[in-house]
Design a protein around this nucleic acid. Structure first.
Lengths: 191, 191
DNA sequence: TAGAGCACTTAATGTAGATTAAGAAAGAAG
DNA sequence: CTTCTTTCTTAATCTACATTAAGTGCTCTA
């Protein structure tokens, strides 16, 4: 319930009144697995915080190939940053992989909160900074590591995801086809 | 001189006093081409804003292969975000490609300014948000586009860089070897 | 309990891009 | 101007990974 407050408190300290104010600006929703809560072509209106369950964001190329941009489980934020910032139609789908409880923070409320509680501007700055570092590293990994090394890093970084996520989506996340991933995996197991 | 203030004013409005305060916290330096202003293994102490000239950040793999993470010309920020945030030794080199005038903002001063001028927290939040969107797009491009398509996007996005930057570094930026880049380029010219 | 659909595997074949190696061209430095 | 170094090109060969295709085994639904 106050999961998101706990998450925020790891970075900035809100007063009880500020916490109440914050809670008044968010909305909690429950989604079944396989629900698509945002589609490519739509404008992203909200930031999503995952209380429980599992989501992913991805694009679809030429109506065929999916590419997973990110997973989000308990305690993570997800959204279509490009669309959210520009308020233009985005390229991302956001889909529920496991039944989820999600906190929605609308763009307007978020902007309003920046004024009402400047500490939240700090909070989101830091969240975004950390996210930027992670994407920079992932990009460099894609430029410099082999598929096997990227898989290895993935396993170490997200050990819990490996059981939960269909393996073809892990393949997509690290940037290989499901067929090659399968071959690579069995090759690794033989060692 | 007040180039950086102009840059800031595109996003937030500072009062004259705030501008003076800001100026008192920064330092301007001149570097010759080929200067390495940050090396892998060092802790990054500053954010760099480019007044003039051209810089790049890159890693080196196994003491051999370079991978360009970013270029920064007039009006751009550059740094080793990972190292700057964590204050741990980083993996990036930052090198001057063309004689440059660079504004240095130390981490301490930056943090201090967040408290003194909260609007600057907004400024940097927005800068980092935009940067995140760009890296997310670049990652997805690397997962889904061919080298030729990535080169095409690069040309459209950074037309001025093509003349300035040695072509092997463009190759590295888009994620191919210089040899393949050369072949690809002559193939494109023949059309 | 059948059968429709996914997720995963295996294997043959194809290819984008890497590697290696050499030479040409163009700067920089003395 | 000459030499040294670095960048760029070309070409042969190689390989990591993609593509295509077929088959296996889930699990969900009816």
């Amino acid at each position: 319930m106050a999961q998101i407050l706990e998450n925020i408190s790891k970075i900035v300290t809100l007063s009880p009144e500020e916490e109440l104010l914050f809670l008044s600006k968010i909305e909690t929703k429950h989604y079944k697995a396989k629900t698509v809560i945002l589609s490519a072509g739509e404008v992203c209106k909200d930031s999503y915080f995952v209380n429980s369950g599992l989501l992913r964001s991805f694009t679809i190329n030429d109506n065929i190939v999916e590419h997973v941009l990110s997973f989000a489980c308990e305690g993570w934020w997800i959204g279509d940053m490009y669309s959210l910032l520009s308020q233009k139609p985005g390229n991302l789908f956001i889909e529920v992989l496991e039944d989820a409880e999600v906190v929605l923070l609308s763009k307007e409320n978020q902007e309003e909160l920046y004024h009402l509680i400047p500490k939240l501007e700090r909070f989101f700055r830091i969240i975004v900074e950390n996210s930027l570092v992670a994407y920079q590293e992932r990009l460099m990994d894609n430029l410099s590591l082999s598929a096997e090394e990227r898989f290895d890093k993935f396993c170490k970084k997200y050990p819990t995801l490996i059981q939960k996520v269909p393996q073809k989506q892990i393949a997509s996340f690290i940037g290989v086809t499901p067929e090659f991933f399968s071959k690579m995996k069995s090759r690794l197991l033989r060692k």
